[in-house]
Design a protein around this nucleic acid. Structure first.
Lengths: 409, 409
DNA sequence: CAATAAATAAATCGAATTGAATTATTAATC
DNA sequence: GATTAATAATTCAATTCGATTTATTTATTG
């Protein structure tokens, strides 16, 4: 074995130990999250039902629920009569129990939202710009936050669990594509976004890639509960995505899993290009400009596009053809149950893209490929900020198998 | 959200509950496997060292080790003196503690191996054929097994933990490519391989895809310990592969994760074809035949190829170009730390393929791609049968986080 | 002899399970 | 309509299991 001498790996061959041991305390933490996740998904579940679904004993569920109820995280509903036996009391999440803030930073706009425990957006603030710059952006965080906080009671403010930021990787890359001056965009290279925001807010700050965050939103609040593993694609100024495996966000070693923008696909002319050059809104902008149409309306509200006619048709067609290839490539690697497509556009655009993608997939060589269902995202254009706001929930309340294992040094 | 009406998913929208609750018994089972895995990887670890690496308390490790020692699974080595303090006693796996059988079924040959607890092959039997048929194959299992068992003591026979089978999916597909009569290959459609073998042997039988099995072998006995996630490619009569995430085999919902044969790549002529049409040994066979060279020597021993000259050069070059595209596509989806290539050929062929693949990757558009290290597999041409034999180990002794969770009905 | 590290025994603690009891209801029967 | 049986949800108390904590012993170096 291993007779290769010169083909030495770049990294020293060191053994990476598996994650650490498990113990009782962790078991309880895990089971608590499991119970909350079950309640979240079914939106109202009796203790007996929770016991059946989790496999935990009824007594254990009683104890866990008692604790969660004492913490105010769950509420008991009205007993359900009409069936034999003692009536069951459905337990619900308390929407007011936890609030969290989400910030989405995009290349044309930023969005700040306040979300409650069941995913309802309670407040929001938005800003648009030709291109993002650190100074103005941080200013928007401060003013937007002040605006939102002003409308909150002290009790509400106290229940904010954290601040999640959804931002693109390497904002300074591809400056030319969005028509931003490289020098200005280079400013981002030296900004530690997490630290800058943490300095301005009193809550823990979590930073995550924007498309990955959108994927997280779909996982918790969208189609996630129905599909244990799916590929997620979010079409914004640049296309990105996320990967869900075993009902958990898989971000990978470097946090870039699912960043499918670099996936090679064939364009209309048969040339191989990266997916992001085709299936991104910046390309639609360029197509509009080429036709003498002002693309700015795209930026103001992702939910109110007008029908741009021919250039839009063309963009949708190309995007779908490219997405189809991406889906088939992904499906050849991992047998996803679904490929979920969403983006910073209105529902009718998403619908057209998904329909066209389904059609385009059928034109490809599918021998041996287990094709995933191609579906529309259920969260919509605000998925990134909702995903941002869900990040603090992940770190404290949502099911995470890592809760069971010791952290390694 | 989700205003699409007619685009109904094929599968009813049912909520899939997460895996079940955890408890103490499971925690112990998990920690036992964790301890064994640590000992396996480091090949000799003191209790104190195990405690440090696992994060478990020293006392817990003492208790677990005591049990494993009583079961004969681990042995204590000679105390290590020379440092301050009480000398530490390194613990080792007992190679004789567990034996397991692995069967690899290929399109040109079958291989049966008996492996010990530390991965050493102790016995083996081989058969080659123009194409596999159920009858003769099962006959080979019986005779090969009889042959091997005849050389074992009753004690050894009693320590056999299971029988793992590594076989291609859908053997009947692509019959023309390997020059097998479709009618004969169709016989496989109605064979329940797992059941047929289980009827003939007294041990639990586990069936797994052949390339996935090879990947499992690499995970336990090869470069696995050094790379928490990697893409694995095994080039046999047909190319296949496996996916390792978080140091665990990821087989996916349908068990086909990593079956990268269907991945679309561009061939020499610029046309898009599936990877398996290029990077498979059956194509080399066809190239040889086209040059009037008898390809049968390829079948007899994967470790003794002669240099076939020009057709081999061509095949290696095309294979590398295709693999390079597959690696880049995979890397755009998941940030693998490594891509490990092995196959049913001698080390020098593997070395040439890997070198050529590294070169071919550099000719592709890599903007935004985090390229994995491209490495030679450390297990070699017998990876599939070794992987087969490792399957019973996975189900009983190797680290598996699922041990912690309740099975769902 | 002091310092250090490994190993383990005994006691403790936390959490899940088991078994029994309680409560609230519907369904069947008189 | 009253009574009884069956069923299901819930909880209490006792038990069990396994990890951790604390204290102690052992073996070694300097």
């Amino acid at each position: 074995m291993g007779e290769n001498a010169e083909a030495a790996p770049a990294v020293p061959a060191e053994i990476l130990d598996p994650s650490g041991g498990a113990n009782q305390t962790r078991v309880r933490a895990y089971n608590e999250r499991l119970v909350m996740t079950l309640v979240r998904r079914h939106g109202g579940l009796s203790k007996a039902e929770i016991a059946r679904r989790s496999g935990l004993s009824a007594q254990t569920v009683t104890v866990i629920i008692r604790e969660l109820e004492a913490e105010g995280l769950i509420l008991r509903g009205a007993p359900l009569r009409g069936r034999v036996g003692q009536p069951s009391t459905p337990m619900h999440l308390n929407p007011d129990a936890v609030l969290s803030l989400g910030l989405k930073i995009g290349r044309r706009s930023a969005e700040l939202v306040l979300m409650d425990f069941v995913g309802t957006i309670r407040r929001q603030a938005r800003a648009t710009f030709a291109y993002p710059m650190p100074g103005p952006l941080l200013a928007f965080v401060e003013t937007g936050l002040a605006e939102i906080e002003a409308t909150l009671s002290p009790a509400e403010r106290a229940r904010i669990a954290g601040f999640g930021v959804a931002a693109p990787f390497d904002l300074w890359s591809w400056a030319p594509e969005v028509g931003a001056p490289q020098a200005e965009m280079d400013l981002w290279r030296d900004v530690d976004l997490q630290a800058e925001i943490a300095r301005r807010v009193p809550w823990p700050v979590v930073l995550q890639n924007d498309a990955t965050s959108a994927c997280a939103a779909e996982l918790v609040f969208g189609l996630g509960p129905q599909y244990p593993d799916f590929l997620y694609v979010f079409i914004g100024s640049f296309v990105g995505g996320g990967v869900v495996l075993n009902s958990a966000l898989f971000t990978g070693r470097t946090g870039t899993a699912g960043a499918i923008g670099s996936l090679p696909v064939q364009g209309r002319d048969g040339r191989t290009v990266q997916l992001l050059k085709i299936a991104s809104i910046f390309r639609l902008e360029n197509l509009l400009r080429a036709d003498g149409i002002d693309p700015k309306p795209l930026w103001y509200s992702p939910d109110d596009w007008v029908d741009f006619g021919r250039p839009l048709d063309l963009w949708i067609e190309d995007t779908a053809a490219a997405l189809a290839q991406a889906v088939v490539a992904a499906a050849s690697l991992i047998d996803f149950a679904a490929a979920i497509v969403d983006g910073g556009f209105p529902g009718w655009v998403r619908e057209r893209i998904v329909a066209a993608t389904r059609a385009a997939v059928d034109r490809l060589d599918l021998q041996g490929v287990l094709l995933p269902e191609i579906l529309e995202g259920a969260v919509g254009s605000r998925a990134r900020s909702i995903g941002g706001a869900s990040l603090p929930l992940f770190s404290r309340y949502l099911l995470d198998q890592n809760v069971l294992f010791k952290e390694r040094d």
